[in-house]
C-alpha cells in the first residue's frame, strides 16, 4: 500500500481513489457462493440482494448528498405495484416490467424532488415521512386496483429472456436480483466517481458553501433524488416479480425505517455499506425471528445502539479503520 505524500501527482491520486480494489472483486465473487454453499437459502439470498439494492438507492441520497429520508419505501412500493400490476394484467415479461417500475417511481420521484430539494434536516424527515404514509394509504384505499390490505394476488411472471423460469427454490430469483444489483451498482459506482458525485459530496459536507461556489445545489438534489427513486423502484419491482405478490408492506413505514437502519449498520457514503448492512440485517432477522417474530427487533436495537456508539461510520467504517491500523498507518 503506497502512502500518499506530497510528491503524488494529482491524476495518479484520483485514479487510485477510483480503482477497483481486490477486496471488491472478492466481495462480488462471494455473492455467487450461495449457489454452492447454501442452495436452500437462495430465496433469502434474493431478498438480501433486493434489500441491498434498496439500501444502495438510499445511500446515494443520504450517504452522498446528505438528504435524510424516512419515506423511501414510497418509491419501492411504486415500483412493486407497477411491476406487479403489469404482470397481473397480462404483461409478465420481467425486464420491461422492471423498467416500467423504475420509470413510474422515477416520475413520482422527480415530482417529489421539487419539494425535497427545498428543505433539509428535520423538515425533510417530516416531509419524506408524510409522503410515504400518504402513498401507503392511497394504495390501501385504492383496493380495487391494489387489492388493499389483502395484497396484490395473481401476479404471473414469464421466464426471463424466455428461458429462465422463476422456481420455488429461488435459483432464478437470486440470479436475477443479483444481476440487477450488480449492474445498478456499476452505474452507481461510476456516478459517485464523476464530477456530479463530487458535487453531491460537497452538498453533504457543506450545503452553505455550494451556492457560494456557483453550484446549483437544488438541481443536483433533484437529479440524484430522481435517480435514487428509479433504483428504489427497481428494487420494489424485483420483489414483486420474484415473490409474485405485493402487499401494502412494500409501502410501509417499517420498510423505510429498516432500510435506514441497514444503511447505518453497514456505513453510509461507501456504496458497500448498504450491501453489507443488508446481509447482516437480513441474516440476523432470519436467525433471530424463528420463534418470536417481533422479538428480534430487540436484538437489532442492541446492534444499532452498539454500532452507532462504537462504530460511528458503520461496520464498514470500522473495518476500514481496522485495516488502516493493521497497515500501521494510524498513530
Amino acid at each position: 500500500m503506497s502512502i500518499v505524500g506530497a510528491v503524488t501527482e494529482p491524476h495518479a491520486y484520483l485514479r487510485s481513489q477510483t480503482r477497483w480494489r481486490p477486496v471488491e472483486l472478492a466481495f462480488w465473487l462471494a455473492t455467487l457462493l450461495p449457489y454452492v454453499l447454501f442452495p436452500d437459502y437462495l430465496v433469502l439470498a434474493s431478498a438480501i440482494a433486493i434489500t441491498a439494492l434498496f439500501a444502495l438507492s438510499l445511500d446515494l441520497i443520504l450517504g452522498y448528498a446528505g438528504i435524510v429520508s424516512l419515506g423511501h419505501a414510497a418509491f419501492f412500493g411504486l415500483g412493486a405495484y407497477t411491476a406487479g400490476l403489469a404482470a397481473k394484467h397480462g404483461w409478465g415479461e420481467p425486464i420491461s416490467g422492471l423498467a416500467l417500475g423504475g420509470l413510474v417511481a422515477g416520475i413520482v420521484g422527480y415530482g417529489a424532488s421539487l419539494i425535497v430539494a427545498r428543505f433539509r434536516h428535520l423538515a425533510l424527515i417530516m416531509i419524506t415521512l408524510g409522503m410515504g404514509l400518504l402513498l401507503e394509504q392511497a394504495a390501501n384505499s385504492a383496493s380495487w386496483l391494489t387489492g388493499g390490505a389483502d395484497g396484490l394476488q395473481g401476479v404471473k411472471m414469464w421466464p426471463i429472456f424466455d428461458v429462465f423460469r422463476f422456481d420455488l427454490y429461488g435459483k432464478t430469483a437470486y440470479g436475477y436480483s443479483l444481476g440487477v444489483l450488480f449492474i445498478v451498482f456499476l452505474v452507481a459506482r461510476r456516478l459517485i466517481n464523476s464530477p456530479f458525485g463530487l458535487s453531491l459530496r460537497g452538498i453533504r459536507e457543506n450545503a452553505l458553501r455550494m451556492p457560494a461556489l456557483g453550484a446549483p445545489s437544488r438541481a443536483h438534489i433533484r437529479k440524484i433524488y430522481t435517480i435514487a427513486a428509479v433504483i428504489a423502484g427497481f428494487a420494489g419491482a424485483l420483489l414483486a416479480q420474484t415473490t409474485e405478490t405485493v402487499s401494502l408492506e412494500a409501502f410501509g413505514f417499517q420498510r423505510s425505517a429498516d432500510v435506514l437502519v441497514i444503511l447505518i449498520l453497514g456505513g453510509t457514503g461507501r456504496l458497500y455499506g448498504g450491501l453489507v448492512g443488508a446481509i447482516i440485517f437480513m441474516v440476523a432477522r432470519d436467525q433471530f425471528s424463528g420463534n418470536t417474530p417481533q422479538f428480534w427487533y430487540f436484538w437489532i436495537g442492541i446492534l444499532l445502539v452498539a454500532v452507532v456508539m462504537f462504530l460511528p461510520n458503520g461496520v464498514l467504517g470500522g473495518l476500514a479503520r481496522l485495516g488502516a491500523l493493521l497497515r500501521g498507518r494510524a498513530p
Binding site: 491524476h11 456516478l191 466517481n193 464523476s194 464530477p195 456530479f196 463530487l198 461556489l213 453550484a215
Partner: peptide, 13 residues
C-alpha cells in the same frame, strides 16, 4: 464553473 458538474456518467479522472 465549467458546467461539467452535471456529468454523472464520466469519471472525474
Amino acid at each position: 464553473r465549467q458546467g461539467i458538474a452535471r456529468t454523472w456518467w464520466r469519471p472525474i479522472t
